[in-house]
């Protein structure tokens, strides 16, 4: 981590402290005028951000391997949340075992060793082939396609897509002298996805509400999407000094892409939850959000951001300042 990354992190800590204090004061001073459910939702988000920040800061300080390890643990946890709400049959047991103990660690090992050609195809091709064959071997044809599709999509979102976040550190060589520009890239990416979640949520609270997909998510509005995306794009431009991108236009464009992909992630995971009849992933207890509820946008945006960045630096190589 270099001075810029430290500065950025200090800014985030300051922002979180202010938000936490404000929420605490609102709870104390105006208990009757505010919707308690809204405050609870904000508190739970703040708690998640503190945890994410602490984990990420610690991992980045320890180095690349620790960061890959952190995201491996997150993937493992979100996948178990996902499979817990997805219906599987006893015949899937052995296949699921290999999904957890083989496919997931293998993906992150390949990310750690920067084997881009392999980690880009491991889960979409080889895990997919293995999964289908293994479940066929279990001799239970009932709803075969539904079962394999559910496990495969869980593996794709929770493991494959998310693993592109630590791949920003390992598989995107920018500076032969070290990976500090990559650290900034990763931090910028995580910050933008989380700001995007926060701002879309904030803009959705406007009195004017035009619902986007009320059957899938009753809180997403056009106001939230447009306002959130516009403000995140602006913030991306303002934060361009902290990124390895040369210009604020590029940083703004990246932030816009991340905002749209993050939004897509949010509504896709809402659709899956609606289909399964659950409100949250995670603890199986009503009212407690799981890790996947907080990181759905990150999962979707990670490969988009990785590939856009890779293409950009291919044509406009990074110049150390």
């Amino acid at each position: 981590m270099d001075a810029v990354a430290w500065g950025l992190m200090g800014g985030v800590v300051a922002l979180l402290i202010i938000a936490t204090v404000v929420v605490h004061l609102l709870r104390r001073r105006l208990p009757d005028q505010l919707n308690p459910a809204l405050l609870d939702s904000i508190s739970s988000r703040l708690r998640a951000w503190w945890l994410l920040l602490a984990g990420l800061a610690g991992a980045l300080m320890l180095g690349k391997t620790a960061t890959v390890m952190l995201f491996f643990l997150i993937s493992f946890w979100t996948l178990r949340e996902f499979i817990t709400v997805a219906p599987t049959r006893p015949g899937d047991h052995r296949a699921l075992f290999w999904v957890f103990v083989l496919a997931t660690p293998a993906q992150y090992l390949l990310v750690a060793f920067a084997q881009y050609e392999l980690f880009a195809i491991l889960i979409p091709v080889y895990a997919m082939l293995f999964l289908h064959a293994r479940i066929a071997l279990s001799n239970d044809p009932v709803q075969f396609l539904e079962r394999t599709a559910k496990i495969q999509i869980g593996l794709m979102i929770c493991v494959y897509c998310l693993s592109y976040t630590p791949a920003l550190l390992t598989a995107l060589p920018l500076d032969p002298k070290g990976y500090s520009p990559n650290t900034r890239l990763l931090f910028f990416f995580v910050l933008i996805t989380q700001l995007n979640d926060a701002l879309q949520f904030a803009w959705s609270q406007l009195p004017s509400r035009h619902y986007l997909v009320p059957n899938i998510n009753p809180t997403r509005t056009w106001e939230g999407l447009l306002g959130g995306t516009a403000s995140v794009t602006l913030l991306g431009a303002l934060l361009s000094w902290a990124t390895p991108f040369g210009s604020s236009w590029v940083a703004a464009g990246m932030a816009l892409a991340v905002a749209l992909a993050g939004f897509a992630g949010g509504i896709t995971m809402s659709a899956i939850k609606r289909d399964r009849g659950v409100k949250d992933y995670g603890t199986l207890v009503e009212g407690h959000s799981g890790v996947l509820d907080r990181l759905d946008s990150l999962c979707f945006a990670a490969p988009v951001f990785f590939h856009l960045t890779k293409v950009y630096f291919h044509y406009f190589p990074y110049v150390p300042s």
């Binding site: 178990r80 817990t84 052995r94 075992f97 207890v285």
Partner: peptide, 8 residues
């Protein structure tokens, strides 16, 4: 061999 899902 156990599969590490969540229980309640």
């Amino acid at each position: 061999l156990p599969v590490p899902l969540l229980t309640r």
